[in-house]
Design a protein around this nucleic acid. Structure first.
Ligand SMILES: Nc1ncnc2c1ncn2[C@@H]1O[C@H](COP(=O)(O)OP(=O)(O)OP(=O)(O)O)[C@@H](O)[C@H]1O
Length: 937
DNA sequence: GAAGTAGTTCTTTTT
DNA sequence: GAACTACTTC
């Protein structure tokens, strides 16, 4: 029986239409990703297509890895080569590392090297970009209050994603601000070039430019890749579209799948035109629609469809499921954010218990709009003793100590990387202060040298006071020594490439003992005769260059084995270094977000030194050398605080990651690419029973039980989007994405009062308009019935004595009860009319009793008691029926002087409440509500 | 030039 | 509640 039988007729058509362009537009859970996966398998298994001539683009590295695994399962015993499955960004890095120098132009000065990026380019992440913009603005004396570096960077990125260069941006700028930004953009670009650095946007742009401008490079890839597949097509931007067109070559064998209702990245340039113009650019395109949803129950599907149907700019489509009925959509209105989280934890605990009893695979997700919401859920899960897994938020590579070490490595790789240089020049402090740095920057500006060049110059010309000079020399020596080590690696690699040594080089003497524990990993990751390959960011096979000269392996297809044959392994035998690495703990990885295979770090002390490394210096050696020479760990030890020790742990983890990298015989730039391209969503672990993540990160995933939290105006939809109708529609699509992740049960929650930031006074919230858009009959109100209390008691974390609760009880103040009563009263008749044209909420079930902590007074009491705080809420009623006070974000108001406007933000409550209003003619105004004489408009 | 402190501002979403 | 800035003191 063929695996094609696991497809419905439309899917099957999409899979079997292998030649020519195919566009699949279909709703959530209709099996789009499955089509891509099966199509790859079909091409290989039934059509005899060489795996390595397939290129599939996914949205995250993790998705790439998963798709690879699935293909592998479908196509048991595949040939040696594998299809390339990668994100656009990873793919572009590979392309650029290979050929970026083809973009260089000869210098006007004879004898000077050509201008443009070299293969040793570094990738700038967002914080690097931000530092760069800050630096430029400071240099140009621009006020970073009026025009924040963030804004500038956002606009620059916008321009890039719309393929505008600084001149074009300048020409189409209508205000002085944009002109300024265009100027900054120009400077930004120059600095990047000078630093031999590319930002994320550049990866796509430069790869596109490369394919456009170099016929030979383009032909190379056109010859290599005969079938192109693109998942999550609705979230591609223009550069990606161009790339797709060029990679499609003349054959036009492109298969793109997407869902316009799931387009949630317009802020990153995702462009609906990519869908609309597909048919224009590929007139022979076949459009296929899939209408059966295999994921969710009818209730869930209906609810989600009803919400997204409120979008005006939308074609609409059919989607049905055979899973009639199902559990109703749960809705819980928590008194506050803490309680919302406890409710989720309580229900998940119950669900896990029940599912486990039934023998089902239990998986639940808590989704939220902003990552900062995760904290409350984490605390609640811990309180319930539940293991959970957080996706996104602060990543390992964003930690200060890790960024420091990575910056050192980047400087070693490319000393002209001034941003990284600035980060480490005085880290840890070595007596290079502000004054010295300013002098160096001035010198760099005068001479046109990079900062690194300026350091040499300053030392040579003795341009600094003796103390600064000696500090600087220290630093220079450190970097030069490290670079010398690196050069050693390079020499070794040359030998490797010449084919002298094909196997991964043996570990250095000093490393042997340490590497024992990882030896089998290395074997696992050696080229295997079967399986799919996918590009983990920056992972490239050690053998690629060596193989380039030999005829294509597995080359039964003569066309691929000609003189200009591509290297079948160029895209590597990449292995995913996390998740795939081994049988990690089964259920969730406890709160920690370190995913690079944790293993004994005992041997990674900073004392390994240089000695043994002379044989084969690796990135790990380099790191150890740096940690040792800078005294980084030693200084942390002296700090002797828990944070310091956790940082030390992180550094060891980094060294471990580097050792894994070495075992794959990766070079430094591959290690760095990996660090730069690893993404938030990549740490999603399917095996985790409980996953907390942002709605964006949940795209493409599915869970039996889903909590969609924080359904409050201003939070979801987010206040930043509430002024622009198109943005609201994107929020609604995000809501659709979130809801359609649920397979069996979906629970929506909101907090009546929520604390923003860490402040102590909570603010009253207005229910999200999306709640009202869910048809009332599909909803079941949760948490108000008394039976819940019993449930909660059952779920009480073990090991806690009731005495704790009792004691806590005495701290508990019932002020919240008054409050909840008052907000209920105010709610029925004084509901604000929302600017988004939300319908009156008559069809929405009313909470029966005050939404007292559904449950667990104990929990709440304990919670607050443990924080030594009483549960007190502001006295002011959240809304006033007269409509003169209590304005909420999104509401339309009228001001005697400024006229009509839209409330943008609210700070404080009662007498002190200040609200920020956007007036079309006067811009943003912050007003004290009490004096502002605002009226509802 | 370093280290510590007080005050501020901020939070979308991410390759 | 963290991260960044400005300021103080050594
Ligand atoms: N023909 C089919 N028979 C059985 N199950 C299917 C079929 N097609 C898809 N599925 C299942 O339906 C679920 C959703 O499929 P898939 O993730 O491919 O959908 P999708 O369209 O990519 O979803 P989304 O757009 O929401 O990410 C998966 O669990 C998949 O295994």
């Amino acid at each position: 029986m063929s695996f094609l039988d696991q497809l419905n007729p439309q899917q099957r058509e999409a899979v079997e239409t292998t030649e020519g362009p195919v566009l699949i537009l279909a709703g959530a859970g209709s099996g789009k990703t499955r089509v891509i996966t099966y199509r790859i398998a079909h091409l290989i298994e039934n059509k005899g297509v060489m795996p390595e001539s397939l290129l599939a683009m996914t949205f995250t590295n993790k998705a790439a890895a998963e798709m690879g695994e699935r293909v592998e399962k479908l196509v048991g015993g595949m040939s040696i080569a594998k299809p390339v499955i990668a994100t656009f960004h990873s793919f572009c890095v590979r392309v650029l590392r290979r050929d970026i120098e083809a973009l260089r132009i000869p210098s006007t000065v004879p004898g000077q090297p050509p201008i443009g990026h070299t293969k040793k380019f570094v990738i700038y992440d967002e914080s690097d970009q931000l530092s760069l913009v800050k630096g430029i603005m400071k240099r140009l004396g621009l006020d970073d209050k009026q025009l924040t570096p963030r804004t500038v960077l956002g606009r620059i990125s916008w321009a890039k994603n719309h393929m505008l260069d600084p001149q074009e941006l300048y020409l189409q700028s209508a205000d002085p601000k944009t002109e300024k930004i265009a100027h900054l953009f120009e400077e930004y670009r120059k600095e990047l070039r000078k630093a031999n650095a590319l930002d994320f946007d550049d990866l796509l742009l430069e790869a596109t430019r490369l394919l456009k401008s170099s016929a030979s490079v383009r032909e190379y890839y056109n010859r290599r890749f005969r079938y192109l597949l693109i998942d999550e097509y609705q979230d591609t931007n223009r550069p990606q579209y161009e790339l797709m067109r060029m990679l499609a070559g003349d054959r036009h064998n492109v298969c793109a799948v997407g869902d316009e209702d799931q387009s949630i990245y317009s802020w990153r340039g995702a462009d609906i035109r990519n869908i609309l113009e597909f048919e224009q650019d590929f007139p022979e395109a076949k459009i296929i629609r899939l209408e059966q949803n295999y994921r969710s129950t009818q209730n869930i599907l209906q609810a989600a469809s009803a919400v997204v149907a409120n979008n005006i700019r939308r074609k609409g489509k059919n989607l049905w499921t055979s899973r009639q009925g199902g559990t109703k959509i749960g809705y819980y209105e928590a008194p506050d954010g803490e309680n919302e989280a406890l409710f989720a934890a309580d229900n998940i605990a119950k669900y896990l218990r029940e599912a486990t009893e039934r023998g089902d695979t239990a998986r639940a997700a808590v989704l939220y709009r902003t990552n900062s919401q995760s904290r409350l859920f984490e605390e609640a899960m811990r309180r319930y003793g539940l293991k959970y897994h957080v996706v996104g938020g602060f990543s390992f590579y964003e930690r200060a100590e890790i960024k420091d070490m990575i910056s050192y490595l980047k400087v070693i790789q490319n000393p002209d990387d001034s941003i990284s240089l600035l980060r480490v020049i005085n880290t840890p402090t070595r007596g290079v202060g502000k004054g010295t740095i300013e002098t160096l920057e001035r010198l760099a500006l005068e001479t046109g040298l990079s900062l690194w060049g300026a350091i040499g110059e300053a030392i040579r010309r003795q341009l600094l006071p003796p103390r600064a000079l000696s500090s600087l020399k220290n630093f220079q020596q450190l970097i030069e020594d490290a670079r010398a080590m690196q050069a050693g690696t390079f020499a070794e690699q040359l030998e490797d490439r010449a084919g002298v040594e094909r196997a991964p080089s043996p570990p250095s003497v000093s490393e042997r003992t340490e590497s024992v524990g990882v030896a089998d990993t290395a074997n696992e990751q050696a080229p295997s005769p079967e399986g799919t390959e996918f590009i983990s960011p920056g992972r490239k096979s050690w053998e690629s260059e060596a193989d380039a000269a030999s005829p294509a392996r597995g080359g039964t297809n003569p066309a691929d084995a000609d003189a200009t044959a591509f290297d079948p392994t160029e895209f590597g035998n990449f292995s995913f270094d996390f998740g795939a690495a081994g049988p990690e703990t089964d259920s969730a990885v406890e709160a920690g977000r370190l995913h690079d295979s944790p293993r004994d770090a005992g041997a990674t002390e900073a004392d390994a030194g240089f000695s043994g490394s002379a044989i084969l210096p690796s990135t790990a050696d380099l790191l150890k050398f740096l940690i040792d020479r800078t005294g980084y760990i030693k200084l942390l030890e002296e700090e002797d605080t828990p944070q310091a020790y956790s940082r030390i742990e992180n550094l060891r983890e980094l060294v471990n990651a580097a050792m894994d990298s070495r075992d794959r015989a990766e070079t430094l730039d591959q290690f760095l690419d990996h660090a730069a391209l690893i993404s938030d969503a990549d740490d999603y672990d399917q095996r985790a029973q409980i996953t907390l993540m942002s709605l964006h990160a949940a795209k493409g995933l599915e869970f039996p039980l889903v909590f969609l939290s924080g359904l409050e105006e201003g939070l979801f939809p987010h206040s930043r989007t509430m002024l622009v109708p198109e943005d609201i529609e994107e929020e609604r699509r995000l809501c659709y994405v979130g809801m359609t992740r649920a397979m069996d049960q979906l629970i929506l929650t909101r907090a009546v009062y929520r604390r923003r930031y860490g402040t102590d006074l909570p603010e009253a919230s207005v229910p999200s308009r999306f709640l009202e858009e869910v048809p009332a009959p599909l909803i079941e109100e949760l948490g108000t019935s008394r039976t819940r209390v019993g449930t909660a008691a059952l779920a009480r974390p073990s090991g806690r004595s009731p005495a704790v609760f009792d004691a806590a009880d005495t701290h508990y103040s019932y002020e919240d009860e008054d409050q909840s009563t008052s907000w209920h009263e105010s709610r029925g008749d004084s509901r604000p009319r929302l600017s988004g044209g939300a319908k009156p909420r008559s069809n929405f079930p009313k909470p029966t009793t005050p939404a007292r902590p559904y449950n667990s007074i104990e929990n709440i009491a304990e919670f607050f008691a443990s924080r030594g705080r009483k549960f007190t809420l502001p006295k002011a009623p959240p809304e006033e029926p007269t409509g003169k006070r209590g304005f909420r974000p999104g509401q339309k108001v009228r001001h005697p002087k400024y006229g009509e406007g839209t409330v943008y933000q609210r700070e404080g409550e009662g007498e002190e409440a200040k609200i920020t209003v956007q007036f079309p003619r006067f811009g943003l105004k912050k007003l004290v509500e009490k004096y502002a004489q605002l009226e509802r408009a």
